[in-house]
Amino acid sequence: MKRWSVLLAALLLPIPALALTGEEAMKKSQAAFLYPGKDFKARVLMKLINRDGQERVRELTMLRRNVGAPGGEQKYFMVFFKPNDVKDMSFMTYKYPAKDDDRWMFIPAVNMVKRIAAQDKRSSFVGSDFTYEDVSGRDIEDDSHAIEREEKVGGRDCYVVKSTPKTGDADFGHKLTWVDKANFLPLKEEQYDRKGARYKEFSADEVAEVKGFPTVVRRTMKNLQTGHRTEVGYSKTDYNLGIDDSLFSERFLRQPPRKWVD
């Protein structure tokens, strides 16, 4: 009789150990979205489109190398091709968790490498609707996360995670992320401003499997207040190419090795 009642109690009680918390969902999502593989390479085409449909283009090669485990330090290397006058400009970031990034930029017209302050991760990345944070990730610890509900996006089951900044200094009030239950990629994200109005919307428009890693190869960020949007497409996407740590240096910033940037 005693044994039965224990079994019954175990069946009736919730099983917290198996359910996912909001924070865990976001951690898994960040790992799947920004940390897959040891390293990563893609040719990135960004279209910056204003309300009237006028387009500006940014084209670059992006290289990434993970230094630590998911959520840890990363190094990014970018070489620009378009617009024409910024050809050969290159940009390098050392990303640290819970600390300001280090950024450098090479300006070929004056043959100069300049360190760039990174105090504002919420500013626009190369004039697009993506912020630096949108590109390379926001520290999970900066927000508190809660799974609000579960919902389908494009036929796929998702957790809807609400992330609210722990301190009030962020320019947004909160965001909702639709995290794919199966592969943990963020399929959709809504950012709300401090007045509670939805002002930015991210969508993963195409997901492809590259070397076994589900990868968002087309994405859009829309600014609902200005009507401006940025569409991003990845091509020549690849993982685990064996990118050497020495690439991420001022020397190569000035003269990126051809094999990595074509």
Binding site: P83, D85, P108, A109, S123, S124, V126, G127, H228
Partner: peptide, 21 residues
């Protein structure tokens, strides 16, 4: 104003990397 158009373009690009749109 710098002497080449590329400098102007690159400066403005640099500026747009962090400025408000």
């Amino acid at each position: 104003v710098p002497d080449t158009k590329d400098s102007v373009g690159q400066y403005l690009f640099l500026f747009s990397m962090s400025a408000k749109p």
